[in-house]
Computed example of a mutant assay.
Amino acid sequence: MVSRPKFEGRAKFEGRAEFEGKTVVVTGAGGGLGTAIVTLMAQRGARVIGCDQSSEALKSPHLASRHVFDLLDRATIDAAIGAILDSDGVPDILINNAGWTRAETLSALTSDKIEQELNLNLTGVMTFADPLVKAMAGSGSGSVVFISSVNAIAHFGNPAYAAAKAGINAYAKAIAVELGRSGLRANVVCPGSIRTAAWDHRLAKDPEILGKLQRLYPLGRIVNASEVAEAVAFLASDRASGVTGVVMPVDAGLTAGCLPFIDDILGA
């Protein structure tokens, strides 16, 4: 029988105590959201293992260990898995954050772009996560958090990326159902738009685009990276010990309903 975490008062979940003694692997650790996740987990006591596609992306002083690999290169993924397990041990928490997209509409798709985006955002993620997930289950405990997207819930463009992220949602539920008895939890965070470097190419085309986004979001703004990182930390922590297989939007209300329909049609 899997033992349940013991709750020893609120102080256990405040400040550095929350993840004290925990090893956390974060992919895409050098990106905008990855940096926020790494910083938050380290501030709360975790030993953070950063993974990204270049050593230049892994300069954060909050990282205790660094591993470079490419989600499109199976050989580097396999090498990184071995290095993580050998040098850092089986992680307590795995945060699969890395992802990328550029084919924004169906008209932009080609066979090469479909293959690239599916391989990067689904096949590569699963290939990296699978051995670590099984090792965590073998150790009898652990928490996995996947960063997906609102694109996996409703269509907001980026069709190949959206299909890959929908696959990630399904994969997380498979882990939750099949490995829950081994003490492993798996959950998903689906962010809405976040102002990171991923928006730079859109801003280059239309400097006013972020302002246009506001009317789509019930909160009147997009979310920031620290808000998404807080949701990730919650799902990774013992505070969420009874939560598994959940797909959580962190999207300022975007997927709750269509605000422009209310304003433009019903309010007209």
Rank of each mutant, 00 (worst) to 15 (best):
A256E: 09
C51R: 00
Y161W: 12
A170L: 11
T123C: 03
S143A: 13
T105M: 08
G167N: 06
A170M: 10
Q214V: 13
A225E: 15
G140Y: 12
E208H: 07
Q214F: 06
A11S: 10
A36R: 04
F146H: 09
A83H: 03
A42Y: 02
P218D: 07
D251H: 10
L184I: 09
V243E: 01
F19C: 01
S237H: 01
G138W: 10
L235Y: 10
T27D: 11
I77N: 01
A231R: 01
A154L: 15
F7S: 05
I265H: 06
Q214A: 12
T123E: 08
I262Y: 08
I37G: 03
G140N: 10
K173N: 06
N151Q: 13
H67E: 02
I209K: 08
A172F: 04
G257K: 09
L109W: 10
G9E: 06
L219D: 07
I168S: 01
I95K: 01
C258E: 09
E104D: 15
A75Y: 06
A256D: 08
G82L: 00
G267S: 05
A42H: 10
L33D: 04
V133M: 01
Y217D: 05
R181W: 11
K59E: 14
A108V: 11
N158M: 15
V25K: 02
D88R: 00
S149W: 13
D86N: 01
P218W: 03
